[in-house]
Simulated scan of single mutants.
Amino acid sequence: MKKGFALFVLALTVVSCNQSNEAKELKTAYIDTSKLLQEYTESKDIEAKYKAKSQEMGKELDVEVARFKTDAQNFQKNAQANGQAWAQQKGAELQKREQQLSYAQQAMLQQLQQESGQEMDSLVVNVRKFIKSYGKEKGYAYIYGTGEAATVLYAEDKYDITNDVVKLLNDKYKKAEPAKVEESKKDEAAVEAKK
């Protein structure tokens, strides 16, 4: 009985040692996802694109807002001179215009959010695919993500591969960028042709 128990303990120890050796061999790393998105050139380009688009669309709206403000100031100056009926009619018109401007602004923001959201979602999907293939290629058992939606509460800096992945993604994007620029120019030309 003692020999059987001793053999059992010895077998358990061997299995335990094998498992701990396997656990030591697991190659792991983490990526700071917030930093990755801040430093990834394609992400910066998308952000800049929608910032410029927002400013351009905002300029058109600003002209309408300025016109509205001028009309509102004129209304206040002329309200007593033109009588109560005129003031009520013009007041209602101004309220309607103010509401339309508000709706236009909301629609513009929603459109920009939807378009940029779709591009960023696509970017995230592509980054995940890249990280997956990177992990397989480099022999990682796990690559964790940190950042705003942290899945790692602590990791030693030596396991941080964020800079490597950002560099590789940026290099890949730079190679693909000339084709995207050509495609964008064709799209812009098509839009101009429709006008």
Rank of each mutant, 00 (worst) to 15 (best):
A79K: 13
L109M: 12
V9T: 06
V127L: 15
Q99P: 07
K77P: 03
K194W: 14
N163W: 12
E47S: 08
L26W: 07
D71Y: 01
Y140L: 14
K138S: 01
S54F: 04
D32S: 09
Q111R: 10
M120P: 08
Q95W: 00
F130L: 14
Q118D: 12
G147H: 12
Y134I: 06
E47H: 11
I46L: 02
A52Y: 00
E177H: 03
L37A: 01
D32E: 14
A52L: 07
L7N: 01
Y140W: 12
S184I: 02
V63R: 09
N170C: 03
G135F: 10
L36Q: 04
S102T: 05
E156D: 14
E148K: 07
A176M: 03
F8L: 14
V165C: 13
A72V: 01
D187S: 09
D71G: 02
K194F: 09
K2W: 00
K132D: 11
E56I: 00
K59S: 07
Y140K: 09
K174N: 10
K90D: 03
K194I: 05
Q99H: 09
G147A: 08
T41Q: 08
M120G: 05
C17E: 07
K24V: 02
E98M: 09
F68N: 00
A104C: 04
L12C: 11
S122T: 10
K24G: 09
Y40S: 04
K194G: 11
S122P: 10
G83E: 10
Q55S: 02
Q105V: 00
D157E: 14
Y142P: 06
Q80H: 02
D71L: 01
K59R: 12
D71I: 01
S184W: 10
K129I: 11
W86F: 03
A150H: 03
L109T: 05
L169A: 14
D160S: 13
L168R: 15
M120I: 12
A48P: 06
S102C: 02
S102A: 06
Q113H: 07
Q113F: 05
S122K: 14
S20L: 01
L153E: 10
K59M: 13
V152Y: 06
M57C: 01
Y50L: 03
A176L: 01
E183Q: 03
D32P: 09
S133E: 14
N78P: 03
Q118M: 15
V65M: 14
L37G: 02
V152A: 14
K27Y: 04
Y50S: 06
S34R: 10
Q80L: 01
I31R: 05
R128Y: 10
S34I: 00
C17L: 13
Y40H: 05
S34A: 03
L7T: 00
G145H: 02
E22F: 00
D121W: 09
A85R: 06
